[in-house]
Structure formats: C-alpha cells, structure tokens
C-alpha cells in the first residue's frame, strides 16, 4: 500500500512537470562502424533535429523512414534539418542495419542502440517513436506510431522551428 501511495504521488508530481523543457539524454550508442558514440554529441548547428527510433523488423518504422527519405533532400535544403535514425535492433539483427540503410539509400545519420539504453533514457515504449528537437536541442514534440501522412504534419512543425516560431 505504501508503495502504491508513493507511486501515485510521484506520478502526480511527474505530470505537473510535463510542460517543462526537456533535454536530449546523453547515452552511449554505436556508429555503424561499431565505434562508440555519445548521443550528447548529436549536433546540427542550431537547426532542427528529428530523432526516429526504428528497427529492421518494424514495418511501420521502415514505411515512415522510406517516406521521409523521398522528401529528405528538399527538406534539408529548405530548413537545414537533420534526421537521426536510431536502430533498436539487438545483436540478432544489428549487423543487417548498415546493409539495409545503404540498400535503401538513406541519407540519415544512423546509430545502433543494441541494448536499448538510449530507448530507455528517452522513455520510448515501442517503435516507431519520433522526437523533434529545436535549435537548442530541447525536445519540443514527440509522436508514437506511424500512419501515412504523419510525415507532412511533422514537416509543418520542422518549418515552424526553422522560422523561429514556437510549437504548441
């Protein structure tokens, strides 16, 4: 019972803080050449960043990233956007990530989160899960799951950020 009350209190207070600014977690992941990378070093010179959690076994994730890839060159030119695709594939599929990324000609920055450390630090329940970061690398928007057309809504927000407008 004590535990329950405690949890409810913590939960209640947690929600009070939801409106607060949130930073990107600094966690160790891997580059596609298996060297270490700290997510705290993610950078885009004050321009917007999309962080998308995905996996090679997740069809909606691949649909989303393939759909964005068709527009990505234009989006980059128009807004200076950078998309970071974080694969949560574990050692069963991690070696297939780079061949898949190249095979689909993705131009994203891709990292491997093989034991879900980054996923946990970002409180991702399941994939696909997409975060949008402003120029100060604060999380300003996030979205779970993917339906065709979601990328258009996301890009409207990216354009707002690039123009210095706020997202509510």
């Amino acid at each position: 019972m004590k535990k329950l009350i405690l949890s409810i209190l913590v939960l209640g207070l947690g929600f009070n803080l939801m409106a607060q600014e949130r930073s990107l977690a600094a966690v160790k992941v891997q580059n596609l050449d298996y060297s270490e990378f700290n997510t705290g070093d993610i950078e885009n010179d004050g321009k917007p960043i999309i962080i998308s959690f995905w996996a090679t076994w997740c069809s909606p994730c691949k649909r989303e990233l393939n759909a964005i890839n068709e527009e990505y060159v234009d989006w980059q030119e128009e807004t200076g956007l950078k998309l970071i695709a974080v694969s949560i594939d574990d050692s069963r599929n991690a070696d297939k990530v780079k061949p898949y990324v190249d095979g689909q000609s993705w131009d994203y920055e891709v990292y491997l989160d093989v034991n879900g450390d980054f996923k946990r630090a970002m409180n991702v329940n399941n994939v696909p899960h997409t975060f949008l970061l402003d120029g100060n690398k604060k999380i300003v928007w996030q979205h779970n799951s993917y339906s065709p057309g979601d990328e258009d809504e996301l890009y409207e927000l990216v354009k707002k950020l690039a123009n210095g407008e706020s997202i509510d």
Partner: peptide, 22 residues
C-alpha cells in the same frame, strides 16, 4: 519527492533537473 517539490516551488525549474517517464 524532495527534488520535485523544489522544482515546483521555483520559477526556473531547469536548474533543479528534469523528470520524464513512460
């Protein structure tokens, strides 16, 4: 709880850390 109370009591919550979850 203590740290949270502090956060709520203050104008600038950022300096007292962040809380998030799922």
């Amino acid at each position: 709880l203590l740290s949270l109370n502090k956060v709520i009591a203050q104008e600038k919550p950022k300096s007292f850390g962040e809380i998030h979850g799922n």
